[in-house]
Design a protein around this nucleic acid. Structure first.
Lengths: 147, 147
DNA sequence: GGCATATAGTTGTTTATGCAACTACGAATT
DNA sequence: AATTCGTAGTTGCATAAACAACTATATGCC
């Protein structure tokens, strides 16, 4: 019976996720400072495409925890910036497969380095054991709320 | 030197805060199901006003980790829904003090119950010690990135 | 084959965010 | 008192999110 675990002042910041917001903002700032002109949301899509190119939009929805309209528009914007291309699947004409442009490939190394740097800034003074614990809790929370 | 703490697959979800996103989405759903027609962002402002009415917009910025334009617009929308009122300060004519309407006061009990219920759903199977640990890590991350 | 149903993706609408530029007022300095 | 600087709040613009409604294609069943 996990009641009263959250004192009033803490409940709000847990729900709103101020820590992850702060990390995201810092990463965005680090991108900007390095002259990289993409949003973290766009980066999060590229991140999954770097792992595996040619995914469908639906697969990107699942990977990034977004709904279909969100991915449609993120891919729209990535296409405008010439970072990805929609290629219709030959097997199933409903499906778009998303491929990276050369330009997007060159972004990978730089942005991943910035992401790691940002996380290191964020996790200064936190032990590896603590990080593992926190990840475990967050994972459990996510699973508890997954439909 | 906390390098390599994040294996590739985990980095993304830490940055994007999928757990807190899930909590927020669930809370929003629970509001809707209870016939309460406010967004969680609006609720987060009300939350601080319930603790202390008559705060300035700047104070709400600090409390909710938002910038001034965001609060301006949230207060706009809350005013439209007749949940708050802007009252110009008599001491300093630059300042708006934000007060709750009767309607907003009646929302407090219901929504706080729903927020607690949502957190209990989220934290099922997580021990109090784990929660404390996770909170500590998230707090440290937030502090590390605070200017 | 033809119809019902499911899946992939798009579009419209409302709300929210971040940043830059702006107005209005107050405080400090000279 | 006038100038300068800082603070409170607003507005414009671009991007993104959630939800509902929509189109197009595929699949399964009769």
């Amino acid at each position: 019976m996990p009641n009263n675990q959250f004192k009033k002042g803490e409940l709000y910041s847990f729900i709103t996720g101020k820590a992850s917001t702060a990390v995201a903002r810092r990463l965005q700032k680090n991108f900007k400072r390095a002259g990289i002109d993409i949003t973290i949301e766009q980066w999060s899509v590229l991140y999954h495409l770097w792992k595996q190119e040619g995914q469908s939009q639906q697969q990107l929805c699942d990977a990034t925890f977004r709904d279909k309209p969100s991915i449609t528009r993120l891919v729209d914007n990535l296409e405008k910036q010439k970072l990805v291309k929609r290629i219709p699947s030959k097997d199933d004409r409903r499906i778009n497969l998303i491929y990276l442009t050369k330009e997007a490939l060159t972004l990978q190394e730089k942005t991943m380095a910035l992401a790691n740097k940002t996380l290191n800034e964020a996790l200064t003074g936190v032990t590896i054991a603590q990080i593992d614990m926190a990840k475990e809790v967050l994972q459990k929370v996510y699973e508890n709320l997954s439909p």
